Computed example of a mutant assay.
Amino acid sequence: MLNLAGPVLAATLALAGLPAFAQDTGTEKTDALFEALGLPQMLEVMRAEGLEYGDTIAQDMLPGGQSARWDALVSDIYDVDMMQEEVRAIFGEELEGDDLDAMLAFYTTEPGQTIINLEVSAREALLDDAVEEASKDSAAIAAMDETPRFQMIEAFVDANDLIETNVVGALNSNYAFYMGLIDGGAMPEGVTAELALQDVWAQEDEIRSDTAEWVYSFLLMAYQPLSDEELQAYIAFSETEAGQDLNAALFTAFNGMFDDISRALGLGVSRFMISQEL
């Protein structure tokens, strides 16, 4: 599962056990898939990441720095129940009419569940700055040497269009944050949505570089225990219609959540900046 916009998925298998799923309603299937993908656990990790990000915003943008009031606001914005409700709703809407049986057949069996557990565990581990730096260093070496595993991860990234989709998601989130600042009255007079958009686009190269670094370091670490056969199956499924539909639904759901969170953070920063000026 990916940080910037959402998880990524894949695998090929025979659909032998589908009659059991066929008796479920569409909502029940979507809920079962939501759980099988480990999305509740991943959202808990994203909340922890968000609280850390809130500390960074306070240090960089608030005149008074971090405070109990700011921490409480950030905690409310990253309310995991609200995050889960929003992602679940959009996820379900995006999957209407898609082949949920093919998705469920993999993620409720092995190696699907192992893959999900690896993704969640890796995401939790990356909360430690030392682990994150070590992961980036290891990925840089693998990229330089073009190891066979790096080439497989590269194929996985390409099949799921992970760099471009995550870059677009990050740009949109940054723009939403700017709009929160503007609408909240924290930006100087004359700073318009158009100027904000220009500034966001100016960050594209840096965002693209950071995104690629994070994606490869995360995937290489998360999938290291997988055999080549398991990883190849994951790549193959991502190229199927079901895999593409699932990946698109996840990105849409998580991008919507991140945009809302970013705008709320921008409005929150505005409120604190203005109150401290007064």
Score class of each variant (00 low, 15 high):
Met144Ile: 06
Tyr234Asn: 10
Asn3Arg: 14
Leu171Ser: 11
Leu197Trp: 10
Gly50Val: 08
Asp128Met: 05
Ala248Lys: 15
Leu2Asp: 12
Ile163Cys: 01
Met179Asn: 14
Ile235Thr: 00
Gln59Tyr: 09
Glu35Phe: 04
Ser138Asn: 15
Val215Met: 02
Gly26Glu: 14
Phe106Val: 11
Asp99Tyr: 01
Gln66Trp: 09
Pro188Glu: 13
Gln41Met: 11
Gln224Cys: 02
Glu189Trp: 09
Ile141Val: 15
Leu219Arg: 00
Glu94Gly: 02
Thr108Glu: 06
Ala212Cys: 03
Gln224Thr: 08
Pro40Glu: 04
Ala142Trp: 03
Pro225Cys: 01
Glu204Asp: 05
Asp137Phe: 04
Phe34Ala: 08
Pro225Arg: 00
Tyr107Thr: 02
Tyr53Met: 12
Gly92Glu: 05
Leu73Asn: 07
Met1Tyr: 11
Asp76Phe: 05
Thr240Ala: 12
Asp259His: 06
Leu51Pro: 04
Ala130Pro: 03
Ala58Thr: 08
Asp228Asn: 15
Tyr78Asn: 09
Asn117Cys: 07
Gly266Arg: 14
Glu206Leu: 11
Pro148Leu: 00
Leu100Arg: 07
Glu146Cys: 02
Tyr78Met: 10
Lys29Ser: 01
Ala105Asn: 09
Gln66Pro: 08
Tyr178Ser: 10
Glu86Lys: 15
Met152Cys: 02
Gln151Leu: 07
Leu197Lys: 15
Ala22His: 12
Ala16Pro: 01
Glu239Asn: 15
Leu118Trp: 01
Glu154Gln: 14
Ala140Lys: 12
Leu62Asp: 13
Gln224Tyr: 07
Glu189His: 10
Ala20Cys: 06
Thr12Pro: 08
Ala143Leu: 06
Trp214Ser: 11
Glu277Thr: 09
Ala48Ile: 07
Ser67Pro: 10
Thr109Pro: 04
Ser121Gln: 13
Gln84Asp: 13
Phe177Asp: 04
Ala10Pro: 04
Phe218Met: 12
Arg69His: 12
Ala58Met: 07
Trp214Val: 03
Gln59Ser: 13
Gly17His: 02
Phe218Ser: 05
Phe272Pro: 08
Leu95Met: 14
Asp79Asn: 15
Asp101Asn: 14
Arg149Tyr: 08
Ala140Gly: 03
Leu18Met: 14
Glu52Phe: 06
Glu164Arg: 15
Asp199Arg: 13
